[in-house]
């Protein structure tokens, strides 16, 4: 039984590895036999060696972007948590601000980014703001849902102890909402990286978005590919960190 489990796990991890390797090999093969121009589609080996050669510089720029994303993420989610709590306590406030929340959410971040640069300057401030703006909404929406989705019988149980509203909040609503919050945090972790990169597109002199943009101007497609890879790594890394924390805190949930 135990051995079988290991086998299944191994299969699950190895299958995607083999598939990706296969794709890379086919890509390499097709590009080299067709002599496709490098500025359009470089070969994986070329990208990979460029990645290693420029690793320190790439790491620096990725670090900047990840920093902007994380700071924005933290600010936005602390704010979103408190707003979600206020919304669940007062239906009137929620009703009043709900259209505003929806309007902000549906406005594309790319449309807002120039304004953010105007307000927060062209340094990391505007990127943090962009990251915060996109990672804000999933937490509000899911947070309100989590705080309000309470089992009727659990509420009856607390009422039978004559529990106060504050006790019901601290001992029932809050822990009950954690799985919902973490679901949102995973989404907003990935989104915050996007927000930071979009912020960098509008005006920056460092960060992974800046590298992508400048390499386009200079037709440095290989460099662009390495930057794209790093941005993907940054997003996955952040998502992974949040997932690990989730498993520790929301341990009762089956994943």
């Amino acid at each position: 039984m135990y051995k079988k489990n290991i086998k299944i796990k191994l299969k699950r991890t190895l299958t995607p590895v083999f598939v990706s390797l296969g794709v890379l090999v086919i890509w390499e093969f097709i590009v080299s036999i067709t002599n496709y121009p490098e500025y359009l589609l470089p070969r994986p080996i070329v990208i990979f060696s460029a990645l290693i050669a420029n690793f320190n510089s790439l790491l620096y720029h990725t670090g900047i972007t990840l920093f902007e994303a994380m700071v924005g993420f933290v600010i936005a989610n602390i704010l979103a948590f408190f707003i979600a709590v206020i919304f669940t306590h007062s239906k009137t406030i929620e009703a009043g601000f709900h259209p505003f929340v929806i309007a902000l959410q549906t406005t594309p971040i790319i449309a807002m980014a120039p304004l953010l640069v105007l307000w927060f300057g062209s340094d990391i401030g505007s990127k943090i703001a962009a990251a915060a703006l996109v990672s804000f909404f999933p937490t509000i929406v899911n947070g309100v849902k989590g705080l309000e989705t309470i089992d009727e019988e659990a509420l009856d149980l607390f009422k039978s102890f004559s529990a106060t509203r504050r006790q019901i909040f601290a001992k029932l609503r809050l822990p009950n909402s954690l799985p919902f919050f973490f679901q949102a945090l995973k989404t907003s972790a990935a989104l915050s990286v996007i927000g930071a990169i979009v912020g960098e597109f509008v005006g920056a002199n460092r960060g992974i978005g800046y590298i992508i943009l400048t390499s386009t101007y200079h037709m440095e497609t290989v460099k662009m590919f390495t930057a794209i890879i790093m941005s993907a790594v940054a997003g996955m890394l952040f998502f992974g960190i949040v997932s690990i924390i989730e498993k520790k805190i929301v341990f009762w949930q089956k994943f």
Partner: peptide, 17 residues
């Protein structure tokens, strides 16, 4: 208010955390 009632529901309603 005097906590005279002990309730047992159809579901155990235990807090999973």
């Amino acid at each position: 208010q005097g906590r005279k009632f002990g309730f047992v529901f159809q579901k155990p309603v235990l807090l999973p955390w």
